[in-house]
Nucleic acid binder design. Structure first.
Length: 167
DNA sequence: CGGATTTGACCAGCGC
DNA sequence: GCGCTGGTCAAATCCG
């Protein structure tokens, strides 16, 4: 884990879920390509007046790296969205490979991997026990292949979500 | 029948 | 070193 960004949407709209149902990952992929920031600060969190939180955390690189190429820093981007369902069909195909209960949340965290060969993008979905309407989706890596689904309403999501960047 | 999910085991990092 | 915790594996199972 190197650094990740937590992005909070603004007020959820009534049509928010339906729009999220198709094109969220495209948004994430786009963000990942845009947010190529690599500040080396340990932890920086900013709270905007309307309650949105952006957090960027640098957890440091593993000291013991094999042959020095395996532990490349892979940026992670975490989104916190309001959704009724954990699985947001975002246009990519994800294969679930694990589920684990984390300590502070009573809801388990699910681990997904992109099914496209050679595309090692991972994501984890976690629901907050404090506010079970909030789902945190953490993306790791970037897709090396085009999206599978059409995503014509991708712009709407961008308008719905407030995106905060650290640099 | 093929691909996705489930689920316990396994493992690695970290703090004590 | 040991145990806790989070991340991954993989065999069994499910489902279209």
């Amino acid at each position: 884990m190197d650094n990740y960004a937590m992005l909070f949407p603004t007020q959820p709209s009534s049509s928010y879920h339906s729009m999220l149902s198709n094109t969220t990952t495209q948004l994430f992929a786009n963000l990942s390509s845009n947010m190529t920031c690599s500040n080396n600060s340990n932890t920086s969190a900013t709270k905007s007046p309307n309650g949105l939180i952006f957090e960027s955390k640098e957890l440091g690189e593993k000291a013991s790296k094999k042959k020095g190429e395996k532990k490349v820093r892979r940026p992670r981007y975490a989104f916190q969205t309001r959704s009724q369902v954990d699985i947001l069909d975002d246009g990519y195909r994800w294969r679930k490979y694990g589920q684990k209960a984390v300590k502070n949340n009573k809801f388990p965290r699910s681990y997904y991997r992109c099914t496209h060969q050679g595309c090692n993008v991972k994501k984890q979905v976690q629901r907050l026990s404090k506010d079970e309407a909030v789902v945190v989706t953490t993306y790791e890596g970037m897709h090396t292949h085009p999206i599978e689904k059409s995503n014509d309403n991708f712009e709407h999501i961008l308008n719905q979500m407030q995106i905060y960047r650290s640099c």
